[in-house]
Design a protein around this nucleic acid. Sequence first.
DNA 1: TGACAAGGCTAACGCTGTAAGCCATACTGG
DNA 2: CCAGTATGGCTTACAGCGTTAGCCTTGTCA
Lengths: 215, 215
Amino acid sequence: MTADPRTRGDGLPTNEELLPGEVRRPDRPSARPRRVAETIAAARKVLEDEGPGALTMRRLADELGIRAPSLYKHFESKAAVELAVIEEALFDIGDVTHRAIHEPGAVDPLLDLLTTYRRYCLSHPNLYRLATIGHLPRESLPPGLEDWAGNPWFVVTGDPHSAQALWSFAHGMVVLELDDRYPQGSDLESTWRAGAAAFERLTAQRRGDGSGRVA
Amino acid sequence: MTADPRTRGDGLPTNEELLPGEVRRPDRPSARPRRVAETIAAARKVLEDEGPGALTMRRLADELGIRAPSLYKHFESKAAVELAVIEEALFDIGDVTHRAIHEPGAVDPLLDLLTTYRRYCLSHPNLYRLATIGHLPRESLPPGLEDWAGNPWFVVTGDPHSAQALWSFAHGMVVLELDDRYPQGSDLESTWRAGAAAFERLTAQRRGDGSGRVA
DNA sequence: TGACAAGGCTAACGCTGTAAGCCATACTGG
DNA sequence: CCAGTATGGCTTACAGCGTTAGCCTTGTCA
């Protein structure tokens, strides 16, 4: 890692390339003790591959070749392990969505963001649920992480309330789709488009231009 | 309960009063064995008052003055108890939302629906989460219950995709608010209004009238 | 009266997260 | 070089979870 913001080496925008309203990414946690890193990686793998029911301390210990109580030499609790995984998930989601709003030559950033979000969440269902459902001890997260991860929604809408509303729509869609809550045979692509259209018109109107009236 | 649809006695619309696109409510499950009914009532009470962590088979049995294994004389599993509670919750949510779209002299049915939904869900957080988060064995629910419960969203939007999108927005808002996922100090009333405005314009536009352009 | 179903009970199993305490290794200051 | 201490394993154990097996009492009905 160098200090020159133009050479982050991670494909993320440099300072000069930030979009209006875009915020810079906080640093990923620096090198952790080996066992801690191994545990987090194992937890993520077990969770993604086999679901939350498989994520137990004994199973985790098995993956590392040790016994469950030994994990408590490195983590205070199972919740602490999960929190570390959540942190990774939030960084990943933030990376994916920030990249989405930087698509070169994009004609519809809002729809691109929704599409990208949906694709990522559906392909990481267990990780997504862990990271976004239930109480989150935000004071234990790296400062600025949540704000940064949510920032793309602000960038594409231009105001905080539309941003929260759009994100809520996307989150609702994703969790309901993951849980198979829509009636059988639902045309969810059309539903996503309907939501996108609603918010396109909202932000277009807010900007005062006429694009809110095109089909 | 009589056969005359005009005297349901539950404050719900009669056949003649159904709004365009509105669907009639399926019947609530008829009289259950005493212990079954008691168990469901106790489960709901414990869940609502003390959260999902308190909802255990032993605790439930305590409430009824029996031992946990005896519950299995009446229910196949804990999941079956929960399913019965979910069913009640879906009926309740359906009742509340159907009533909302029947408000006499309503000028903004869509906003009324959102407001009512939000109020109900926030005042029954644990019940709502149980009923709407995670996998649901829909084949075990009374036929038509899910459709009927979701019907108001269709009534206020006029098409199925807008309905699903609007409901997804509302669900996303509610679960994120319940889990305290919005940044501290967020003005969520404004966020709800932003979402409502987005979908108002969408449905107004779909109807082809000009109301999509007013502030 | 005998059969049977309903609905309690106890004991127990395997699972969970986690606390307590022991011990070997490795590093470090005197 | 040795003593002290931190690190990170280990075993044992506990309480609580959903659940099963099997027993026993009560009520109903042929």
